[in-house]
Write a protein that binds this DNA or RNA. Structure first.
Length: 546
RNA sequence: AGACUCGUUGUGUAAUGGUAGCACAGCAGAUUUUGGUUCUGUUAGUUGGGGUUCAAAUCCCUACGGGUCUGCCA
């Protein structure tokens, strides 16, 4: 039986009660003030999957009501990210398309005596609003005549006032326990920055609360799904809708819990602080939980969508462990990535019974998970590098790799036996003298009966290429960086979250492209960074192998 | 302090009055030319107290705990 979340249940019930299925319509309403992050992926996935299930669609609506914060570049990035995640919107709209309609609705509300122009300063209004355990007090301008309000609202719109001089307020209830209903602001004057779309056409801008429900109404959205912080806004959402003309479908708002990811912060505003303070290198820094950051890190759309699917939708506070995300990406990358051999901390192997001028180009399988087998050639020679920590001089319990007198398999090559080590003057091991069994080549079957417990990756000293690798760790050292509130998450920055390293890779990596995903065998998953070039190959570590 | 809201193994999420299940993580074993993958097994849960009922995670009461709200942000 398929799991069905509480929102699907609500919709199912609506349909059972007679709501026409053809009128189902959803929306995704980002504000273009930053890049999308994995929390948005949850909302995107939810809406698009519902739309798909009921054969309807999703409108992408840019909630662009605050010119101070918003920019065109964010619009572009948001569209790219949604597309990359694999979703297609029915159409793309803008709240700013509805500024005139909203103005008309506002006049309607004023005419019904339900809104007024308040000449007080911001601070005064805030004082009068009081707090959650004290009644607010009415503004002295609350009972202006309708005629005067209409007159003043027009003057506001026509630019007679300056930023902060006055606002339009809904006349609801200054004593409401819900602060959102204590005469909320509907319009404010913003002249200090022009809107990136409407330019200087408007100097009054509708607030989120005033805009959102009406935009849903205009677009015939049936179910307006948002995260829990808007829960206390729902009575206001409904109040506004009840106070505009209603000839048609009234949208309904439902809330679900936003995504919280351990060791991460999922708030555009907070992520912006990381960008502005240069704690990270831009919105697409591979440490960022942004869609663009995850993409650059090597995450696939499939892995992100699968992760979102697995965590589900509910109304309770959730703290998702990062291991769930990691599981998703490993699962997908295991299926699709090409296996290659890269040595991170090299130690030299000298094969005493292998001719010094001989080179064998050995066949090597690209991906054992792939049904259609493909192969590449890797060079084998007398001098090789293996990982430093794959060798231990003395045999130790639970250590299956190379030690003196013991045999290991070299991946795709021969069985190797270590005999001696050569030390530097400082006592560190410089190289390991070994012999190989020439009848033990991989897949030839000759020595395959022999029980070899361990298989090592390696590169040829003569043919390896140097690559640079970016290695990332969690950007925060605290599981819940928001624990102290007040933007103190900065205190928990992990100063050790980024490292770069040189490694020795098999020559096949020279032809890597940005679309390829690699498994550096026994180490992890990696992909080419956008800053890589032919001379300096640069890789990002996506995730270590388990 | 109030209004609204949410409490199910370590983490998520199902079960809408009838066997508390699934995924991740953990642990154990098997397989393996990646200490990966795969497969098998396994540990662990209904916040407490009362009530209704043949039967309660589910309904009622109550206590406790978490979250949101005092922007002219969204």
């Amino acid at each position: 039986m398929k799991k069905i979340n509480f929102l699907e249940k609500i919709i199912k019930k609506d349909l059972e009660l007679g709501f026409p299925i053809k009128k189902l319509l959803f929306r995704f309403p980002p504000e273009p003030n930053g890049y999308l992050h994995i929390g948005h992926a949850k909302s995107i996935y939810l809406n698009f999957k519902l739309a798909k299930k009921y054969k309807t669609s999703v409108i992408l609506r840019f909630d662009d009501t605050n010119p101070i914060e918003e920019e065109k570049k964010f619009i572009d990035s948001i569209k790219i990210d949604i597309c990359w995640l694999g979703f297609k919107c029915k159409k793309e709209t803008y709240a700013s398309n509805y500024f005139y309609k909203l103005y008309y609705f506002a006049k309607h509300i004023i005419k019904n005596g339900k809104a007024y122009v308040d000449d007080q300063k911001k601070k005064k209004i805030q004082e009068q609003r009081k707090n959650t355990f004290e009644y607010g007090i009415d503004s002295p301008y609350r009972n202006r005549s309708i005629k005067e309000n209409i007159f003043l609202f027009k003057k506001m719109k026509n630019g007679y006032f300056y930023d902060g001089d006055c606002v339009l307020r809904a006349k609801i209830d200054m004593k409401s326990p819900n602060m959102n209903l204590r005469d909320p602001i509907m319009y404010r004057i913003i002249k200090k920055k022009l809107h990136y779309r409407t330019n200087n056409k408007w100097c009054i801008y509708p607030t989120y609360d005033w805009t959102h429900g009406q935009s849903d109404y205009i677009e015939n959205i049936s179910h307006s799904l948002c995260s829990f912080e808007f829960e206390n806004h729902k009575p206001l959402y409904n109040w506004y809708l009840n106070n505009i003309k209603k000839k048609k479908l009234i949208p309904k708002q439902y809330e679900f819990s936003r995504l919280n990811l351990n060791y991460n912060i999922l708030s555009k505003r907070k992520l912006q602080i990381l960008v502005k303070k240069n704690i990270v290198n831009g919105w697409d820094d591979p440490r960022m939980p942004t869609i663009s950051g995850l993409r650059r890190r090597g995450y696939t759309p499939e892995s992100i969508n699968n992760f979102i699917k697995n965590i589900g939708i509910s109304k309770r506070i959730n703290n998702i462990d990062i291991s769930l995300l990691e599981f998703s990406i490993r699962k997908h990358l295991n299926k699709i990535s090409s296996r290659v051999m890269v040595v991170f901390n090299p130690i030299l192997i000298i094969i005493e019974n292998y001719p010094s001028d001989k080179v064998e180009w050995l066949n090597s399988e690209n991906n054992p998970e792939d049904i259609k087998k493909t192969y590449r050639k890797i060079p084998f020679s007398k001098y090789l590098y293996i990982e430093n920590n794959d060798f231990m001089e003395k045999i130790k319990k639970n250590f299956f790799r190379l030690s003196l007198g013991k045999e290991v398999r070299l991946k795709n090559a021969y069985i190797l036996k270590a005999h001696n080590v050569y030390r530097n003057l400082d006592g560190n091991i410089k190289s390991i003298y070994c012999t190989y069994d020439k009848n033990s080549l991989s897949k030839t079957g000759t020595s395959s009966k022999r029980k070899i417990k361990s298989t090592l990756h390696w590169v040829s000293k003569k043919f390896f290429i140097k690559i640079r690798i970016n290695i990332y760790k969690n950007i925060f050292i605290e599981k819940n960086p928001d624990i102290l509130k007040n933007n103190n998450f900065i205190n928990f920055i992990n100063n050790d979250s980024f490292k770069t390293k040189i490694a020795y890779a098999e020559p096949a990596l020279r032809t890597a492209t940005i679309k390829n995903k690699f498994q550096f065998q026994r180490i992890g998953y990696f992909c080419l960074d956008k800053k890589s070039n032919n001379k300096n190959l640069l890789f990002n570590k996506t995730i270590n192998i388990k």
